[in-house]
């Protein structure tokens, strides 16, 4: 019986990995194309949650979850056009500073518009409650979340690997000058990837709102774990982020099973160990820009 409960934690950890992945994936994508560590990513997640709540008042939960990423994606165009674009070739410290500042602006904007008090959100009744698969207990809603994550991941993978758009983006990441020499303007591609990245973060915000507290600092809370995932996986690595998210979920769950007080610390210990033995992360490539 003990083993069953331990395995339940492992499987729950894998599901939880999907939860982290929605935030970490966008971070990783934006880093891949622009070489920018977007510290304001959490703000897009939080704004996504708040906008989804407003939309849900009229169009229901599904309407909020679908439309909020679209609206935040449009904000992403402005973000790329007026801010990020200036920092692609600049010293990374500058983009770190500007996105850090933007994260604070985002949090304060939420405070001004929606107030400091948390916004109550409840799960749709149809998605509430447990599902038993064998001896394992799952939350119906998290299985739904996992399904959404798998669809998003598959979509992004297909976009990057099976379309002409993806070929240009990948070429642009590796050889931007060569792509330019071929007469292809990279800018629209960059914009699209940024829109996708912040849109996924907003989707995460919309989907997590019913199961976590919705308050102005919610972005700052999630961003730390998302960074841990990206760093363990390797900055810019698609599969590395997926592997790291699952690993972080499992390590945390198993640690809480045996020694709950160390649950939060376990993921940082994991990051420490990975960086000790493989500084570029599990599947990360060598990044000259940062060396």
């Amino acid at each position: 019986m003990q083993f069953v409960f331990l395995m339940e934690q492992v499987v729950n950890g894998l599901v939880l990995g999907g939860y982290y992945l929605l935030i970490a994936l966008g971070l990783s994508l934006i880093f891949s194309v622009g070489g920018i560590v977007n510290l304001s990513h959490g703000a897009f997640y939080a704004i996504g949650a708040y906008i989804s709540i407003e939309i849900a008042r009229v169009f229901g939960f599904a309407g909020g979850a679908v439309l909020s990423p679209v609206i935040v994606g449009l904000l992403g165009i402005l973000f790329e056009r007026f801010i990020l674009r200036r920092f692609y070739r600049a010293d990374p410290i500058l983009s770190l500073l500007v996105t850090f500042g933007l994260a604070m602006v985002g949090e304060q904007l939420i405070r001004i518009i929606w107030g400091a008090a948390p916004i109550p959100v409840s799960l749709p009744q149809a998605l509430k409650g447990p599902v038993f698969i064998g001896d394992f207990l799952f939350s119906k809603y998290r299985l739904f979340l996992l399904g959404v994550v798998i669809v998003v991941l598959t979509g992004i993978w297909l976009l990057l690997n099976k379309t002409s758009f993806g070929r240009v983006v990948r070429a642009g990441i590796q050889q931007p000058d060569m792509v330019a020499a071929l007469g292809i303007r990279l800018q629209p591609y960059m914009t699209t990837v940024i829109v996708l990245g912040v849109g996924i973060a907003a989707l995460g915000g919309a989907l997590f709102a019913p199961i976590t507290i919705v308050h102005p600092a919610m972005g700052a809370e999630i961003i730390t774990v998302a960074f841990v995932v990206v760093i363990i996986g390797g900055l810019g690595s698609f599969w590395g982020v997926i592997l790291a998210a699952l690993l972080v979920g499992v390590v945390r769950g198993v640690t809480i099973y045996f020694y709950p007080a160390a649950g939060a610390a376990s993921i940082y210990v994991l990051m420490f160990l990975v960086l000790m033995f493989r500084p570029r992360g599990l599947l990360g490539e060598r990044i000259e820009k940062f060396e």
Binding site: F5, Q9, G13, S139, T212, G253, I256, P260, A261, G263
Partner: peptide
């Protein structure tokens, strides 16, 4: 009696322990 760090936002592992 399990201790929970103040920055924990996901309680699913604790919920499974409660069920156990």
């Amino acid at each position: 009696d399990d201790l929970v760090a103040t920055d924990v936002t996901d309680f699913s592992p604790y919920l499974l322990k409660i069920r156990q």
